[in-house]
Design a protein around this nucleic acid. Structure first.
Lengths: 334, 334
DNA sequence: GCAAACTACGCAAACGTTTGCGTGAACGAC
DNA sequence: GTCGTTCACGCAAACGTTTGCGTAGTTTGC
């Protein structure tokens, strides 16, 4: 329970003013070589570590070395990968990370946004809960750098990095069609999310390209959670004229759909083919191995963090918008 | 870019001293009903949010409402679940969470421990990298509450919550033996981790109980990562007298082992049975569904956070040590 | 050889809180 | 009517930094 040394302790021991110590730490201002040496020595002896809280309090923005990341759920592997991406670049630049799960709950999102501001983070990475997310817009109005990931936010000039959901879905469904399928069921995401909408658009465009007319009974909307994947797959497969292939718009719903297929004892891909959005842990050793479109989640996080750091350094730089390409991994399920 | 209101702004507008405002916020001290009303009104008008940084700076410990969580890798679903557990109880108690991945890298662990202290977190949850983890011992010596999870730390009286790895492994291997197997290969974890050791002990004890003598060539040690699972499974299956069943000591290595089995075109469980440690995303819809021992990761995180909060409230309470029971989920892979 | 410029460092304010102490007013007891 | 108590609130220090300004002492320019 020994006292943690502060600037004052170092200063006293080195017989200089605290401002001098501060300056050798931050390498700002002119310091005599000899003094510098002495201060550094004392710092080592005392095991001095700068107090980040005090530093944050003093300097308003840009040097707190703390980033905020607010995601729906860390248990979703997509966001875990993404988080890992931002963490890695944060660590490389000596930033720490404040991480929160908001669970698609607006109150929680608001709470955590408040916390972040109140913690004086240098910047925030967030997949906005809504297209027009007043809470995050308020934050950027307060002057905190924000970059949006995964989903877009309607209002203008924010940095953002997304994956090209349209092209991903398009390629996936094109592939399904190229395998000869004409009745393709889709388990989509919520239409009020850009991801849900874009993936559905890919599905539709692929049909249009191939001259296949859409059947509304084959189009179902889930909530990106496992449960909805299961029940919607059951619904689709219970149709009097069931689809011969399924396109499932995220990883968790994919797991649910596979449950339904297993429960019905259907053989993949003979009785029903399937391709999912998002890579899954055992996808490549599944029987049969699962055809999926892999999202570059780690890269999304990495790019977002890099963008954020750039903006922190230069708050006036024009907003940039990245769109990363997903990759269709063709295995045996379709 | 408007100025964020501070205590001073509220005080001025309500025509009181800042200390009064502080007192109505914290509900400490006597305040006149009328004054209180006025101050609250002004706070609402201005949208005042207390500055957590200043608060943390002023009060030394116990009320910063910030918890630290340092884990090996958030991409490991076990730790993601665990993290979710602590996050949930943190949120319920209005705590925020500082999350870091240390990647089994001692330098990173040290860096993040420094950050945590420097951020004046109220407490830290960590799976110590070593049995005798000097860095974390130093932290508790400095007076920061710490609870260890998953792995134990040798030195005395720390709060900790683990899962009973011995009983988990014992039950698993008992089950394998009950299926008639006598040559059981094990892909274990590093022996310098308590988890690795305890699971191996379970494996051995199950053999002893059944009167089966251990064959050293059937015992291999990985590093809990996917790659080692694959190569060790290949090694075991290449033996002139290969095992008829495999016990794999964590989830990632399980995925690797399944890769190896798939590559060799072996049928589970006919040609080789397998049971793993850790539940996996598609385990229940795998073909065949995977028999695993499920660790209560979420509960571990939950309990750890609750323990930590208790200790923060009362730093002198005796250390408690929880051991949660894992669950053998028998499916079809053995 | 002297003004100007620079070097190396100290002084003190400021960041937004919390909190011990002080104090005037109201109040109850006698 | 006096005195002690309680109430409601103000004053100012403190937490550990950063940083603009000031200032001795030294160097440079000519």
């Amino acid at each position: 329970m020994k006292k943690i040394p502060s600037l004052i302790d170092v200063a006293r021991r080195a017989k200089v003013n605290i401002s001098t110590v501060s300056r050798v730490i931050n390498q700002t201002g002119k310091i005599g070589a000899e003094t510098q040496e002495r201060v550094l020595k004392v710092m080592r002896e005392l095991g001095y570590k700068p107090n980040r809280v005090a530093r944050r309090l003093r300097t308003q923005a840009g040097s707190t070395h703390l980033l905020g990341l607010i995601i729906p759920n860390i248990q979703n592997i997509f966001f875990a990968d993404l988080a890992r991406g931002v963490e890695d670049v944060a660590y490389k630049n000596n930033f720490a990370l404040l991480l929160c799960n908001y669970d698609e709950d607006e109150a929680k999102e608001r709470f955590y946004l408040d916390v972040m501001q109140s913690e004086s983070v240098d910047g925030i990475i967030i997949p906005p809960i809504q297209e027009t997310d007043q809470a995050v817009l308020q934050v950027v109005r307060n002057g905190t750098p924000v970059v949006c990931v995964d989903r877009s936010v309607s209002s203008g000039n924010l940095d953002k990095v997304e994956v090209d959901n349209h092209i991903g879905a398009l390629r996936a469904v094109e592939h399904i069609i190229s395998r000869g399928h004409r009745r393709i069921g889709v388990i989509g995401g919520p239409l009020d999310s850009s991801t849900g909408r874009e993936r559905l658009r890919g599905y539709k465009d692929a049909h249009a390209q191939a001259g296949i007319t859409l059947k509304t009974e084959l189009i179902r909307f889930g909530d990106f959670k496992q449960h909805s994947g299961r029940v919607l797959a059951h619904e689709l497969l219970s149709l009097s004229d069931p689809p011969t292939a399924l396109f499932v718009c995220n990883g968790l719903m994919m797991a649910g759909a596979l449950e339904a297929i297993a429960a019905r004892g259907l053989k993949i891909p003979r009785q029903v083919a399937i391709v999912g959005f998002d890579e899954l842990t055992l996808a490549d050793v599944f029987n049969p191995p699962l055809t999926v479109v892999r999202q570059p989640a780690y890269e999304v996080g990495k790019c977002a963090a890099e963008l954020l750091l750039k903006r922190i350094e230069d708050p006036k730089r024009p907003a940039s918008s990245l769109k990363l390409l997903p990759e269709l991994i063709v295995r045996k399920s379709c």
